[in-house]
Design a protein around this nucleic acid. Structure first.
Lengths: 254, 254
DNA sequence: TCCTAGTGTTGCGTGATGCGCAACGACGAG
DNA sequence: CTCGTCGTTGCGCATCACGCAACACTAGGA
């Protein structure tokens, strides 16, 4: 059976095991039989794959025979993974400086299929939110880094995202794709994007693309904060700083 | 070939694939041949396992034939995993409150083999450090949450850790196991642990165990900050708040 | 309290998959 | 320019992963 990804035949049991992890990431927790149905394999196969993942700490089971969920071993791996990502490393210092300068939360995001995923985070002194954004995915049409990634993505990616209904996150979310297309054209023209309460009510953001010397888009740096501090009048000035920080990160990456 | 973990025979290729991820977490990056040697398999086997992991985003390769490293897909999974952990969820609210109250960074850690691993983090207004501790592991003898986890761990765990040389992280690190044993007895007696520059110079911490109603140790909550703010004179007062927060988290877990 | 249905686990036999070998192309160092 | 090493891939084969069947356990309903 061919999982047509990357043109080569994957190792079937590894592919299934990762499928289990992705299912549990979406679903929260699930039983053996349910996981077997989801993967299209026998429940005894699912049970053995889960036992292997559990032995390595990537999943854990509640009780002796209960549901499975993602485990702490995954966090250990990802902690190492996040620290090692090129874009995360490149962003670390410039994000810290930007956070200190502007006093708001700064994130580095990469394009992850049809979403923006945060891979690094720095927080300024004014930020009181305790939420960890690393690993979190935001919709491409409703977040500032998402708009940047969408604006500068290959045409195929933009067409795929714009082909689907644009989910409304708040009353301010752009859900008309022609409106979004025009906004993305503006983003490309001026080199930065902004949101005003489109992802969360009262949350504004400004983002700029991180591009390597070879012209490859590798991520986006964004600053976000409450609208009463990061209001539209400040967007141009903040954008100037974000674009500069993104430029520094891009230079580091070659 | 039997990987004697949990008594059952693991699925060999899944076990190997996870072994690759763990090796890359330790090593940073590595080539196909090196990974094959590390796992004790042929390089073509390693190449196929890596291709499957890469197709799913868990690893990425630099250039067409370059070294492999952990990928963004792992961070996505772990972002979901961290959010879903019982201990992380239980700690979220109490950590946020504690961070707001004390103004310092609060972490929740679990015992992860021979280290303390942070699974959740909240930062107070005074904290300016931008480092993300989630996924990071600290030595059990040199961090406050590590001392708590060690003090209240089963005897077998404590014996295993104390059997090894205790690595010196700073000049203040306790490396004499009899001194550490006495300190762990004090931790058990008073119900909290503290460190003074033992993990990092100038960094102090206070931690308390999170125990379920059934008496099971599931983690430790810690507060950390620079020595000039979180000095020894404040330890008892801070400990009182941390013990209370840990008690709340334990109550949530049943 | 008892019965039934469904779940998760495990022994076993089978065939499909994962594996190693060999060969090849690419790349870097001398 | 040559050589050694790396990563990739086709191929054949043996081992491993798989499904089936059976069992123990648990929860819910009568």
């Amino acid at each position: 059976m061919r999982n047509d990804e990357g043109g080569v035949q994957p190792v079937q049991s590894v592919d299934r095991a990762v499928g289990i992890l992705e299912f549990l990431a979406r679903r929260g927790d699930a039983g053996v039989t349910e996981i077997g149905v989801e993967l299209g394999v026998h429940k005894s196969t699912a049970s053995r794959l889960l036992a292997t993942l559990e032995a390595r700490g990537l999943v854990e089971q509640s009780g002796a025979r209960g549901a499975y969920r993602l485990g702490a071993g995954l966090i250990r791996l990802a902690g190492a993974g996040a620290a090692q990502l090129d874009v995360a490393q490149a962003a670390r210092e410039v994000s810290a400086e930007l956070a200190a300068e502007l006093g708001e939360t700064v994130n580095m995001a990469v394009l992850d299929e049809d979403a923006a995923m945060n891979v690094s985070q720095a927080r300024g002194s004014a930020a009181v939110a305790v939420q960890n954004w690393v690993g979190r995915r935001t919709p491409l049409h409703a977040s500032s880094s998402g708009k940047v990634l969408l604006a500068f993505a290959p045409d195929a990616v933009r067409r795929r995202v714009l082909a689907r209904p644009l989910a409304r996150c708040t009353p301010a979310t752009i859900t008309d794709r022609r409106v979004l297309d025009r906004e993305l054209a503006e983003v490309r023209a001026r080199g930065w994007a902004a949101t005003q309460g489109e992802l969360e009510v009262g949350l504004n953001g400004v983002a700029a693309p991180v591009v390597t010397a070879g012209g490859e888009l590798v991520g986006a740096i964004s600053v976000s904060g409450p609208a009463y501090r990061l209001d539209a009048a400040r967007f141009a000035a903040v954008a100037e700083r974000v674009v500069a920080a993104a430029g520094s990160a891009g230079a580091v990456l070659g």
